[in-house]
Design a binder for these strands. Structure first.
Length: 553
DNA sequence: CGGATTTGACCCGCGC
DNA sequence: GCGCGGGTCAAATCCG
């Protein structure tokens, strides 16, 4: 991929994953990481303090900025943007000039206020020393009041800026979505011609970059502060892309967005597995008819429905914060574990089939094992995307393995003695178990820092410094909560497009060689590229899917 | 009062 | 057929 494309993905990645501008989410759980967001250490400390004190991140930013006065304001505001250098400079100059003007204006107002007060205080009075002191005191108070007003103004501006950034992120997300869908269509069209596909892909990247440039400052005034219009993509320069996205969605109803895009091996047609359209969506576990007599397609479908993703994290809390709303519907004592297993279902939308089980590890009670099953049928908040897309991509990976086998069991080349680890991921970070009743991918986030040996022995980790190992090493330096940890994993997984594009030629060759692989690959790429889709993000599971790609290429 | 949680009953698949 | 274990249901209860 060319450099510009890299930049684009960096921007998307940063905007989509480093910030959480969703109103409620940012209030409940600030997801601003330490490592890259703040340039000023002192400011970072302030934000950290605020987070510890449960002060919303936005407020923390505002207060930090306010505390710094005008000189630092420019830098602080710039830190909101993680855009490329040129865009940053443009925005910087724009904000600078704006601030200079505003500073002058504020100074004038202060002087004016001071003068008026003095006049008011001194009219018709003898200039005794006491009066003079009183006047000075009043003047001082007035100055403080003015400063307060200025600070309030500043806060207001920050809020407006936040709103604007929100809408920007939304539009960048739209771009990314369009990119994803376009890539899928290209893969389908040029499956036999990797070169043509790469050319098209680069063209598309270029076009989207242009749109991003427009977004990131060249036409700031056109950005709706309310965000409503831009969220819909109406009147935005991305309209054409959004439209094309809608267009490309239609044939398969956005496979990456919904449940696992699979192919009927017999008909070679996409199967709609979306739970909302599935009659058995609310009776998943009672449909355990994985009988050998069933045809391969039905078997695969059942397998997908039962595909699970487990996440192991160390936590004292009873449940990890994954951004979703859950309603507990049962609790059982599981055999061999003194800790009860709790059953939850997603309550963010009526009829959402996603369930999860939460249980403490019998061996180590500090480890919380959360198992997700199913696919959300509704938009998800940013914080929930990583986990949500985990299940779909895991299912797609499982699908790719099962479809390659004749007996419907997982037959991945990684599959050794029932459990497989994946190249490109950290050892034991992601495992696929076929010994469980249903295929389960386990993400073990209890392992914090990989050793030097594990990194050096893994070419994938050496290939790109930002990949899992090093990033985890850097970012797990401080205590992470579950959401942060998932974000770390998610962020690193969003780097996957580089590898994906690098291997796109060989991947295409694999597609042409094995039609069944196409479905899994499309799902994998969809979840990698489409990680910022509102109801379906690519994230930690990408370790699985990308590994699948690498393995098959 | 409405939504969430608790908890015992029930259903179902599986192994013996 | 029976018992066991996992999973779900639904009435009772809790809570904001």
């Amino acid at each position: 991929m060319d450099k510009s494309a890299d930049t684009h993905f960096n921007n998307v990645d940063f905007l989509a994953t480093k910030f959480n501008f969703s109103d409620n989410q940012s209030v409940k759980e600030p997801l601003i990481p330490r490592s890259t967001l703040w340039k000023s250490e002192t400011m970072e400390d302030e934000v950290d303090r605020s987070q510890r004190g449960s002060i919303p991140a936005a407020a923390a930013v505002a207060s930090a900025s306010v505390a710094r006065h005008k000189d630092d304001r420019v830098v602080n505001e710039l830190n909101f943007f993680a855009i490329d250098k040129s865009s940053r400079e443009e925005v910087s100059s724009a904000i600078k000039s704006e601030n200079v003007e505003e500073s002058l204006k504020e100074d004038k107002e202060m002087k004016l206020d001071a003068g008026l007060n003095l006049l008011t205080e001194n009219i018709g009075s003898d200039k005794s020393l006491v009066d003079e002191e009183e006047a000075r005191g009043n003047e001082h108070r007035c100055l403080n009041l003015t400063e307060l007003a200025v600070l309030r103004d500043e806060l207001h501006r920050m809020n407006m800026e936040n709103q604007r950034l929100k809408s920007m992120i939304y539009q960048v997300n739209s771009n990314c979505n369009a990119l994803q869908v376009h890539l899928l269509s290209l893969m389908q069209r040029h499956g036999a011609n990797p070169h043509a596909m790469t050319a098209d892909y680069e063209k598309m990247i270029g076009r989207t970059l242009e749109d991003c440039e427009k977004l990131t400052g060249k036409d700031e005034n056109s950005q709706s502060l309310s965000g409503d219009k831009s969220r819909d993509g109406l009147g935005s320069p991305q309209n054409n892309i959004v439209e094309s996205m809608e267009f490309f969605k239609k044939p398969t109803e956005s496979p990456a967005n919904e449940f696992v895009p699979s192919h009927d091996p017999d008909k070679n047609e996409p199967i709609d597995h979306r739970p909302g359209r599935d009659d058995t969506a609310w009776a998943p576990t009672k449909v355990q008819n994985l009988s050998p007599s069933a045809d391969q397609g039905a078997e695969t479908t059942a397998m997908i429905k039962k595909a699970r993703v487990s996440v192991r994290v160390r936590s004292e809390a009873s449940m990890i914060a994954d951004g979703c709303q859950w309603r507990k519907y049962g609790q059982k004592m599981a055999k061999g574990n003194p800790c009860p297993r709790a059953y939850y279902r997603c309550s963010m939308a009526v009829g959402c089939p996603v369930r999860k089980q939460v249980q403490r590890c019998a061996e180590d009670k500090t480890i919380l094992l959360t198992t997700y099953e199913g696919q959300h049928t509704h938009p998800l908040p940013q914080a929930a995307m990583a986990m949500a897309s985990t299940t779909s991509s895991a299912a797609s990976m499982i699908l790719s393995g099962s479809m390659a086998s004749s007996d419907g069991l997982i037959a991945s080349p990684h599959y050794i003695a029932g459990t497989a680890s994946f190249p490109g991921s950290l050892p034991s970070l992601a495992t696929l178990s076929a010994t469980a009743p249903f295929p389960t991918v386990t993400l073990d986030l209890t392992h914090t820092t990989p050793t030097t040996e594990t990194i050096s022995s893994n070419p994938m980790l050496l290939q790109r410094p930002l990949f899992f190992g090093s990033a985890m090493q850097r970012q797990v330096g401080h205590a992470l909560n579950q959401s942060e940890l998932l974000q770390v994993v998610s962020n690193q997984m969003k780097q996957a497009p580089y590898d994906m594009v690098d291997t796109v030629g060989t991947a295409t060759a694999a597609i042409t060689a094995d039609p069944n692989f196409a479905a899994a690959l499309v799902a994998a790429i969809a979840s990698v590229v489409g990680s910022v889709r509102p109801n379906h993000g690519g994230a930690s599971e990408d370790v699985v899917t990308r590994s699948c790609i690498n393995e098959n290429t």
